[in-house]
């Protein structure tokens, strides 16, 4: 059995997960990254996407997060997500709603911000396809 480390997933509305896990796979802003026990201290921005927790008390868990950031301080890891929902609780309709909102927001933007918003929509679409 691999070494475990304390991990917490927090959204502004509540503490979603807290416990020892083996590994966490995260959608980082510069590509996917996996955090395991003993990972170097790291602060990373996260994109909207699906994160995967393995080796936790409930086995493998997949959670959709709508952007946020990850703070690994060498011993424990905390993910602060803007919004988070377990993949089992997520429906295609709910994703459609989020995408529609993002599109509406993108329409109001210009230039670089708009490109960014469009990238976000693209990621959201991939997430939808994945569930």
């Amino acid at each position: 059995m691999a070494a475990t480390f304390p991990f917490e997933l927090v959204s502004p509305e509540k503490l979603l997960f807290s416990g020892d896990v083996e590994a966490v796979l995260l959608p980082g802003a510069e590509g996917e990254l996996q955090v395991m026990a003993g990972h170097a201290p790291l602060l990373a921005l996260l994109e909207p996407g699906i994160m995967e927790v393995t080796g936790g008390p409930a086995g493998k868990q997949r959670v959709f997060i709508d952007g946020g950031f990850c703070d690994m301080n060498g011993e424990s890891c905390t993910v602060l997500a803007e919004a988070a929902t377990a993949v089992e609780d997520l429906s295609a309709e709910a994703m459609d709603e989020i995408i529609a909102e993002a599109e509406e927001a993108a329409a109001a933007l210009e230039g670089g911000e708009r490109d960014e918003a469009n990238r976000r929509i693209a990621t959201l679409r991939t997430v939808k396809a994945a569930i």
Binding site: G28, E30, L33, L42, L43, A44, N73
Partner: peptide, 23 residues
């Protein structure tokens, strides 16, 4: 916490701060 730990930043610290402060 862990005030002296040397952090890795991804992307760099200023970019993260840019995203973090509005949040």
């Amino acid at each position: 916490h862990a005030g002296n730990a040397v952090y890795e930043y991804e992307p760099d610290a200023t970019d993260i701060l840019d995203a973090l402060v509005p949040r």
